[in-house]
Simulated assay, not measured.
Amino acid sequence: MQSASGQPSIEIFELTIMEPMVTFTDLWITAVCLYAFYKLKKLNKKGKVHQYMRWYFSIMAVATFLGGVLGHAFQYAVGLEWKLPGWLISMLAVMAVERASIMHAQPVINDKFGKFLEVANVVELLTFAVITFTTLNFFFIQVHSAYGLGLIVLPLHFLVYWRTRNEGSRIFFLTVIFATLAAFFYTSEIGLHKWFNHLDLAHTVMAISMYCFYRGARQLEVLKPEDIKEDKGAFGDAVKEAIKGTAWWKKLVG
């Protein structure tokens, strides 16, 4: 049995598994998320930001597990509609990381704008959930993730970094940029081999991104008034400072 992605199925003890490497890389993301959740729970940092980040990793672990098992490995047995649980739960995870970013940025943004983002966060989730449920189209999951990460998480964390030089926000900002590679591999369908196709590459980027988000979450501190720099410097200078140096990747992953 061969899937739409072109990856052949395998049989283990007479049990057919579709897209085995795609399933494995999905479960790889699950493992990284569970590790991050366990370590952050053990760290036990207080505040809503850290609570939302723990939720993010735990919810994403569930989403990618269901995605791997129902959306890939046993898709032939359960049908297309069983992709929905993993898809919809992953949208909750994106909502959680958006919420964490909004909460973290509260000291450096206008109160009314912060409240607007919180309401928009819920409206956006409900809108894309309804569209996805009625269309069964993964495209809208991509749009939701692009909106959440590209238009909420990235600019908010860059703003926090610009105003405070918070290391956790620097890592989040760089990680979102790196994570765009996952969308590139997925949409361009560029793969290395039929046993490591475009989905496997996208999942690998996602797994690395999850670990980077975890490293960033460890360094998200409650911002105090004295952390906010009045002389924040030029926008371009902040970008250069965030990415400068040959060891930026080492800094990113800790």
Rank of each mutant, 00 (worst) to 15 (best):
V78W: 12
V78S: 04
V78I: 09
V78D: 06
L80T: 06
L80M: 02
W82H: 12
W82E: 05
W82S: 08
G86M: 01
G86V: 04
W87M: 14
L88H: 01
I89T: 11
S90K: 02
M91L: 15
A93M: 07
V94L: 08
V94T: 15
M95I: 04
A96V: 04
E98I: 06
I102L: 08
I102F: 04
M103H: 10
A105L: 01
Q106R: 14
P107G: 03
V108K: 02
I109D: 01
D111H: 12
F113A: 15
K115A: 14
F116G: 09
E118I: 09
V119C: 04
V122M: 13
V123A: 10
E124V: 14
E124I: 13
L125Y: 15
L125S: 09
L126H: 01
T127P: 04
F128I: 09
V130Q: 03
I131D: 05
T132D: 04
T132P: 07
T132Q: 09
T134Q: 04
L136Q: 08
N137K: 02
N137A: 03
F138E: 12
F138M: 11
F139H: 08
F139I: 05
V143N: 09
V143T: 13
V143D: 05
H144Q: 15
S145M: 15
S145T: 15
Y147L: 15
L149C: 06
I152A: 09
I152S: 07
V153E: 07
V153I: 14
V153T: 14
V153N: 09
L154Y: 14
L154G: 11
P155S: 09
H157L: 08
F158Q: 01
F158D: 01
L159D: 00
L159T: 06
L159K: 05
V160Y: 00
V160M: 02
W162I: 02
R163W: 02
T164R: 05
T164M: 07
N166D: 15
N166P: 00
E167M: 11
E167F: 10
S169D: 07
F172Y: 15
L174E: 05
L174F: 03
T175D: 13
T175W: 10
T175N: 15
V176T: 14
I177G: 08
I177D: 07
I177H: 09
F178W: 10
F178C: 02
A179M: 15
T180I: 04
L181P: 01
A182M: 01
A182F: 01
A183D: 09
Y186K: 13
T187W: 14
T187S: 13
T187E: 14
E189G: 06
L192W: 13
L192G: 11
H193L: 08
H193F: 10
H193N: 15
H193I: 08
H193K: 09
K194R: 13
K194I: 12
W195C: 03
W195Y: 14
W195D: 10
